[in-house]
Amino acid sequence: MFVLLVVMALCAPLYAKHVAHTTPDRNNITGKVTVGGEQRDVVSLDGIPIGPTWQGEYLLGADQNGRDVAVRLLYGARNSMFIALTATAITTILGIILGLLAGYYRGVVDWIISRSMDVLWAIPVLLLGVALGVSLALGGVKLGPLELSGDSLWIPTLIIGVVGVVYLARPLRGEVLRLREQEFVEAARAQGASGPRIMFGEIFPNIIATVLVFFPLLVANAVLLEAALSFLGAGVRDPDPSWGTMIGEGEKVIITQPALTIAPGLMLVLTVLSLNVVGEAVREAIDPRARVRLEQ
């Protein structure tokens, strides 16, 4: 299911070119489209966009700017998936490193990492995301060699990636705390292995299962967070499509043209649902007894 969604997102340009004959951000406010033999305005004179036509052009209707919703939906899927997957990759890498460091070295290192996590956890994720998103988007980011303009996709990606670290690093830290006391770790130390070598050579292979279980859940989480941020205007910015921005735009005409909100909403539900199913399956396959939950 999730794979199908990804394939759909990847095929977006094909669909746009050969079926819908448009691009995700081509405005067409004054244009007309033939539906069932009769000519109709894409956007009516009083500003109400056309509903689903169930044909090649404007399959799911248009938005206020006369852009094809189906095309934007697919392109939005690309953005949403890109952000979610990249953010989760960032989360995973950071989470593994921090979890290993905190769990293995304990003491001061653990204290610093764990307390930072507490702080991050104490702030509502959305609030933090919006605050960061708005402030970063206004000024752009200049971090050494890293330079991002305000409308770059990397800004929401980074925010979502960093915010999610807490959910992975904590359980991993616990796992590492348990593993480090195992005798095979002591055996490695008796052979003269260094700290990093034990962490990555001995302990890391044992936490991969946990990471695998968390991964789809984290992606689902990231998709939702991205949608929420974009909806609030702190994530992906117009004219770039994303499900969140599309819901945000559709919300203005939700009474007259609900399809505009329902379509991306359904996509969101499907994606998150499928990811959760994947996560559940992975969990069952690896350890039927373990209970993993993401709390937010």
Binding site: E183, F184, A187, P205
Partner: peptide
């Protein structure tokens, strides 16, 4: 100098 452990279940890394 090397060490042989009491519990042969815990002393071998299950993932290697």
């Amino acid at each position: 100098a090397q060490l042989v452990f009491q519990d042969p279940h815990a002393s071998l890394n299950p993932r290697k």
